[in-house]
Amino acid sequence: MWPFEAFLVVHITTGAVGLILFWIPTIGKKGSPTHRKFGMLFSRLMMVTASMAIGMASTTLLAPLDTHPKQVALNWPQSRIEGIFGWMMLYLAILTIQLVWHGVVTIRNKKHHLANRHWGNVALNVFTIFAALVCAYRGWLIDEGLMMAFSIVGVASGLTNLWFIYTDEPRRIAYQLEHVKAIVGSGISVYTAFMAFGFVRLSPGQALNPRMWAIPLVVGLVIIIYHQARIRIAFMRHRQVSASAKA
């Protein structure tokens, strides 16, 4: 139990701080020193949080009954504990790392697009797709629709990231759009895990309530759509002003 509890303490600490800081770059002025400072701090905290989640998932798979006594008391079968708190948590952690990394490198490499094709970057996206498919398969084995449904996010994220990476000449705004999608997406992933897995300790029987999983997804999608719309509008206005100046 002690390794699991140690991973959990760090996971909760860094995750809670990171998810508070998430709103500073999300709401604040884009591109400002404050945005860059707290955005990078958020990204680093999410990397630590996700790494701890990998540790929690791994210890769960090694000792599912010892690490989740409340679920045992509720007569959860071992296969379900392994599926939800092992395979699904492992997948969400990998997805979070992939999203954060993609969000950082798309801005870092906006003047050197070919750098996005580094083998490590490509491999991370391929591995995320693989983890999503494993999660879906494990969900199918225990007839857990939530695991199969959320695996779609990882497959879609990996494929769209690879599409961007192997686009020869992305539009200038593509880097900003990818950055917003990935960073806010990582916030959705971690908020989802906190509301779902964290809720287990308050009310174990409600751990898989679809509402707990849907709230961060809906809020996050609204944020992504809003900011991407602002980016597109600003880009169009800039082009119109440039065209008028040339005329």
Rank of each mutant, 00 (worst) to 15 (best):
Thr14Cys: 11
Gly158Asp: 02
Ser242Thr: 13
Arg232Leu: 14
Arg108Phe: 06
Trp76Met: 08
Phe197Lys: 07
Gly86Ala: 06
Met212Pro: 00
Val200Asp: 13
Glu169Ile: 09
Val126Trp: 09
Phe150Gly: 08
Asn209Ile: 06
Leu90Lys: 02
Gly187Phe: 02
His11Met: 09
Leu21Asp: 02
Ile152Pro: 04
Met236Cys: 01
Gly198Ala: 06
His113Lys: 03
Arg232Phe: 04
Ala149Phe: 15
Thr26Val: 14
Ile12Trp: 06
Ala174Asn: 07
His112Leu: 07
Ile188Val: 09
Val241Gly: 01
Ser32Pro: 04
Ala73Thr: 07
Arg237Pro: 00
Leu62Glu: 03
Met212Val: 10
Thr128Cys: 14
Ile188Ala: 01
Ala247His: 11
Arg232Ile: 12
Asp143Tyr: 06
Lys111Gly: 10
Gly31Cys: 06
Val122Arg: 03
Ala149Arg: 11
Gln78Tyr: 00
Ala193Tyr: 05
Trp76Pro: 04
Leu221Pro: 01
Ile224Ala: 05
Asn161Thr: 08
Val10Lys: 08
Pro64Asn: 04
Asn125Tyr: 01
Ala53Pro: 02
His102Ala: 12
Gly220Asp: 04
Phe130Asp: 02
His118Tyr: 10
Ile223Phe: 13
Pro3Asn: 08
Ala115Arg: 14
Gly120Met: 07
Thr192Glu: 01
Phe130Ser: 05
Trp76Glu: 05
Gly83Cys: 13
Ala247Trp: 07
Leu124Val: 04
Gly158Pro: 01
Ser189Arg: 00
Met148Phe: 06
Val48Ile: 15
Leu19Lys: 03
Ile54Thr: 06
Phe85Trp: 14
Tyr91Phe: 14
Met212Ser: 10
Val222Met: 13
Phe194Gly: 02
Gly185Asn: 02
Val9Arg: 15
Ala247Val: 05
Ala115Glu: 12
His68Glu: 07
Gly205Leu: 08
Ala156Pro: 02
Ser58Val: 15
Leu92Ile: 12
Tyr226Ala: 12
Leu21Tyr: 11
Phe235Asn: 12
Trp119Lys: 13
Ser186Trp: 00
Gln98Ile: 01
Asn209His: 10
Ala243Gly: 00
Ile173Ala: 03
Gly145Ile: 09
Phe42Tyr: 14
Met1Lys: 14
Val126His: 01
Met56Asp: 03
Tyr91Trp: 10
Ile165Tyr: 13
Ile12Tyr: 07
Val219Ile: 15
Gly158Leu: 03
Phe199Thr: 11
Gly187Trp: 00
Thr96Glu: 12
Ile107Asp: 08
Ile27Cys: 04
Val9Asp: 11
His102Glu: 07
Leu92Glu: 12
Ser79Arg: 11
Ser189Ala: 15
Arg239Asp: 09
Pro216Gln: 04
His179Gly: 01
Ala6Gly: 15
Lys111Trp: 02
Ala53Trp: 05
Gly185Phe: 02
His11Tyr: 09
Ala73Gln: 15
Thr26Asn: 09
His102Trp: 03
Met56Trp: 03
Ala229Val: 11
Ala131Trp: 01
Met212Asp: 06
Ser58Arg: 00
His227Ser: 06
Lys110Met: 14
Trp23Pro: 06
Gly198Glu: 05
Val184Phe: 00
Pro77Tyr: 05
